[in-house]
Design a protein around this nucleic acid. Structure first.
Lengths: 347, 347
DNA sequence: CCCGCTCGTGAGAGCGCTCTCACAACCAGG
DNA sequence: CCTGGTTGTGAGAGCGCTCTCACGAGCGGG
């Protein structure tokens, strides 16, 4: 008869559209029309097909559908970071959450992937270009990584979180106003009377790191001061990176009275370093973070920070991607969402 | 000529195996053999096909492959909770993390889905049974939900996290030793001289809630005492649920000197309630949680808790699922992993 | 009464791959 | 020289669906 079942523990092969059609006494085409909700079918045919499908627990084979329509009804959420970072940083989790919600609302599925090693990247490329997803949401692009370009070249629509460092002309992205946020924080520190305002910058192979530093510089210069490199300590977005960078800064410039940290997580490290060195945070030294992750409000003292609209970023990226997949016209390649200063007790 | 391209912004239709074969001067079958890594091919054919594939940036169409092999090379990670809970509870995040790692190690992809509403469940069922995933990892099953049974009936191998309340005979699951953990915690409280040991139980529509309570009861009775319902306050696994349950308990039994909370998150709420009522946690009232999420160690005072092997649970479920998908024989339906007591300062 | 509609339907041609099967080419053993 | 086994290859039949196209039925207008 037929070959042995290969799928799971299923005893009989899955019912097909053919069987539904036969049982309903109509053609495969009509059965397909009913099941897809196509308009042109008679009441009678509809009822017959629906009843037949129910009786034999028919579920359409998605691979067959995908093969002919070219659509898989799912998108990938890809993070180019270590698992450690992905799950330790509330920013990524917030993005994952809002993307998952937006994708589910659109009736699609989310394929969640974390990429560390280069070979993972090749595998993902084959997977995405192979048509198992209709598009990709890409987070945390580093340096001049060409992944988005390669995806687009293979026909896979891709939307980035954060402005890419290279290839920016052709790529699509959604970003927060990182430069504006850096200015906001730095200006606030300057205007509240701080005179030796330093920054613990983020990684400079990422756009968010560069832009927040650019915002700092721009605010310093707008205040009529000169940009002083001894007040800039490059760290990353993690607590330990912020801690180490703050320590180096303190060694070099023990006179700092304010620090703008490029992320909240880094700010936590900065605060710890300050406390270890016996400085009163918010008094001796003001601190401002970036992101406004939930934990920021729970710190002692509560952290003043630049609020990024994380949920809005995630849903904006997702909507943009879905619109591209639908082939909608007149979309803008770049979306930049505003940020705002949230005053708490550290500045 | 051909129909308009529908996939993304791709200009020409994606290259097919046919084209690779033509370019290499071999048949489709041989090209397929090479690309799949099949043994029986000559060195020469291999080189020709590989070169041809590279030249035209060929990527196999996964839908076509899935259609014939019946395998999609991806599994679903399904959580039946609100997005809020999913992302607020480190237990779920830990499971997601370890599942994602284990799935990636096996060269597969993870489809991440959160289900709230009943209609989502139907949609997911159609998706999974439609063959877009080869199996399902299901977390947080409530009450007598028949989803796993329905998935299995449709031929989709499913592995649960936590023993199901019903249908246990036929379902596959991986669980922590919840009863043993409840006993461990309660016995420790009893043996350290506490005499009015209460519990803030988890939701009783979930097995973990029931089992941890059963462990509490068993330890109480093993100590020669009678199970006193006034010392049992049913909450849930969240801080607010634990807080409310603790408050009710304190109103009813102001004399309690120890509380076993069914989760760390609940324990955080219990500790807060205790502090609000002016009790010294760890002295007036001992508290033990369950899970050992990373935050437990950072509390003031650090929380004594029953450690669940979260990473091991996630990878064990994934391995079990993959083994089932492979059709491996002699697998055990139930795996129960041991827990251990982590002593800190609250008990 | 016939023409041109719309409307519902079925036949049939793919989508791009895998896999079975048959077969040619080659080798060694009798 | 023939047999019996490899070994590599190609032809061709699907996998289960969607979609185009043609066609018959029904209907109102000229």
């Amino acid at each position: 008869m037929t070959t042995a079942p290969r799928k799971g523990t299923r005893l009989r092969p899955a019912p097909t559209l053919e069987e539904v059609a036969a049982r309903a006494g109509v053609s495969r085409a009509t059965a397909s029309r009913v099941l897809r909700g196509d308009a042109k079918v008679s009441e009678r045919a509809r009822d017959l097909v629906l009843a037949a499908a129910r009786e034999i627990s028919y579920v359409p084979n998605l691979a067959a559908r995908t093969l002919v329509t070219g659509r898989s009804e799912s998108v990938a959420f890809l993070v180019e970071e270590s698992e450690e970072r992905m799950f330790a940083d509330p920013f990524f989790l917030g993005m994952l959450r809002s993307a998952q919600e937006a994708v589910a609302d659109a009736g699609l599925q989310l394929v969640f992937t974390v990429i560390n090693r280069p070979e993972d990247q090749e595998r993902f490329l084959a997977y995405a270009a192979g048509g198992h997803v209709d598009g990709v949401l890409l987070l945390s692009l580093h340096g001049r990584d060409q992944l988005p370009q390669r995806l687009e070249a293979l026909g896979v629509p891709t939307v980035l979180s954060g402005r890419p460092l290279s290839g920016g002309r052709r790529l699509w992205y959604v970003d927060a106003d990182n430069v504006g946020g850096g200015e906001l924080a730095t200006t606030h520190l300057l205007e509240s009377g701080r005179t030796r305002v330093a920054t613990v910058a983020g990684p400079l192979d990422m756009c968010a790191g560069q832009d927040r530093l650019a915002g700092y510089r721009s605010a310093v210069e707008a205040a009529g001061r000169s940009y002083d490199e001894s007040l800039v300590s490059v760290g990353d977005f993690t607590p330990s990176g912020g801690h180490a960078a703050a320590l180096r800064l303190l060694d070099r410039r023990p006179d700092v009275d304010a620090i703008f940290a490029a992320s909240d997580l880094a700010a936590f490290g900065v605060v710890r370093a300050l406390q270890e060195r016996g400085r009163k945070v918010g008094e001796d030294v003001a601190v401002i973070g970036f992101d406004d992750i939930p934990e920021a409000a729970d710190q002692h003292p509560p952290l003043t920070t630049v609020k990024q609209p994380i949920a809005a970023l995630g849903s904006a990226m997702t909507r943009l991607l879905l619109d591209r997949i639908e082939g909608r016209r007149g979309l803008t390649r770049r979306t930049v969402l505003p940020v705002e200063l949230v005053l708490r007790e550290t500045a």
